[in-house]
Amino acid sequence: MGVPKRIKRYEGQHALVDGIPYVMPINCVDSPALFAGFQINADKARAFLPGNELHPFRLWNGKGLLLITVINYLETSIGKYIEFSVAIACTHGRKPAPRLLPGLMMGFYGTGQYVVDLPVSSEISVKGGKGIWGMPKHQANLDYEITDDTVSSQYEKDGQFAMRIEIDRPSRAWIPFNIGATNYCQFRNMLFASYIYFKGKAGFHLFNSANARLYIGDHPRTAPLRELEIDGDAILTAFIPEANGILDDHFDTWFLTYDEAPETMPEGMESVVDLGLSEEWLASPSITDYQQFKI
C-alpha cells in the first residue's frame, strides 16, 4: 500500500498543532527498526483490548500475536527519539474475524495492532503522539543497539526494569517492502486509529530461524503482559536498517462501548496539557541483571 497522493501534495507545507511546528508530511527518514512477533493466548489478549469493537487477531492455530516494534527515529519533524511499541494484533468490527483471513483482507476487517504501551525518548514526542493521535506515549529510559550479530532495545522507567527485546540480526536486508499499517489506541476513553506508511528493505527470519529474546520486568506498565502466556520462541523477526515512514494526514476516532458502565476514566487531556517541547532524552538504561525476566 503506497502513500496516498493527497499526502504527497502537502510536501513542504507547514502546520502548527498544540504549539508543535510540523513541516508536512510528518515523516521519518532512514531510521533503523526491529520487529518481533510472539504467539500469545488470544482469549486472554481480549482482556487487554478496550471496549467491544476490537478483537484479537487469530493465527492458524487459534493463538493471538504480540508485536514488539522498536524504531530509532534518526530524523523526524520533531527531532530524534526512540519509540518502543508493545502491541496486540487485532481486528475492528462488530464481531471477531475468522482466523488468518484478516491478514489478507486487512481493510475489510480493520486489521491492525492495538498499542498497549508506547515509551519514547523525548517529551515533545509524548505531547504530539498522545495529544494529537491518542497514542499511549510516555517518556522512559530507552536505548537501541546494533551489533554485527544482534539488534536490541531496553526499556526502563523510574529506575525499574520494564522490558528488553533482542533479535538475531539477519545477514542482509534485501527484501523491498512498501506497506501501510493501522495503530489503534485508547485515549480519553475513545478509540483512535492512525495510519502510517513504511518503505525500505528488510531482512527476515521466520519460525525456527526467528531467534529472539524477550524479557519482561516487574514494572506495572509491563508486568501484566505475562498474563498473555507469551511463547518464548518468536515466529517472526525483522530488521530494517533504513526505514522511511510517513504518518497519514488524518486519524479516526470512535466512542468505545461496554456492556456495563465503566467505573474508571483512562488517561485524558490532563496528561498532556502541561507538557513542553523538549527534545532531551532521559539517561540510557543501566540495569544489567535482567536475565531473571526472560520469557
Rank of each mutant, 00 (worst) to 15 (best):
G2P: 00
V3G: 03
V3T: 03
K5H: 06
K8S: 06
R9P: 00
R9Y: 04
Y10N: 07
G12K: 02
G12W: 00
V17K: 11
D18S: 08
G19C: 03
P21H: 11
Y22D: 00
V23S: 06
I26A: 07
S31L: 01
S31W: 01
A33G: 09
L34N: 01
F35S: 02
G37F: 08
N41T: 07
D43N: 15
K44S: 12
A45C: 08
H55F: 11
F57W: 14
F57Y: 15
L59V: 09
N61G: 10
G64S: 11
L67V: 15
V70E: 05
I71Q: 08
I71H: 10
Y73N: 12
E75F: 00
S77P: 00
K80F: 11
Y81D: 06
F84H: 11
A89S: 13
T91G: 06
R94N: 15
R94S: 15
P96K: 13
P96E: 09
A97K: 11
L104C: 07
M106D: 11
T111A: 13
T111R: 14
Q113R: 14
V115G: 05
V120A: 08
I124W: 05
V126R: 05
K127E: 06
G128S: 01
G131V: 03
I132Q: 05
I132L: 04
I132N: 01
G134E: 02
P136Q: 12
K137D: 02
H138S: 13
N141W: 11
N141S: 15
L142S: 04
D143I: 06
D148R: 08
Q154G: 05
D158S: 15
D158G: 09
D158W: 14
D158Y: 15
G159F: 08
Q160F: 07
A162I: 06
M163C: 13
M163E: 09
I165F: 05
D168H: 11
S171K: 12
I175C: 09
A181L: 14
A181H: 04
A181P: 03
N189L: 07
S194P: 00
F198R: 01
F198P: 00
F198I: 02
F198T: 02
K201P: 01
F207R: 14
S209N: 14
A210M: 03
N211I: 13
A212Q: 04
L214T: 01
Y215T: 02
G217R: 03
D218Y: 07
D218V: 14
H219M: 04
R221Q: 13
P224E: 10
L225D: 02
R226C: 04
R226K: 12
D231T: 12
I235P: 04
L236D: 03
A238K: 00
F239T: 01
F239E: 01
F239Y: 06
E242Y: 00
E242L: 07
A243C: 08
I246Q: 02
L247F: 10
D248Y: 03
H250D: 00
F251W: 00
D252T: 05
T257N: 14
T257K: 11
D259F: 04
A261W: 04
A261P: 09
E263I: 13
T264Q: 10
P266V: 14
D274L: 11
S278N: 07
S278Q: 06
W281C: 15
A283T: 15
S284F: 01
P285H: 04
S286D: 10
Y290F: 13
Y290S: 09
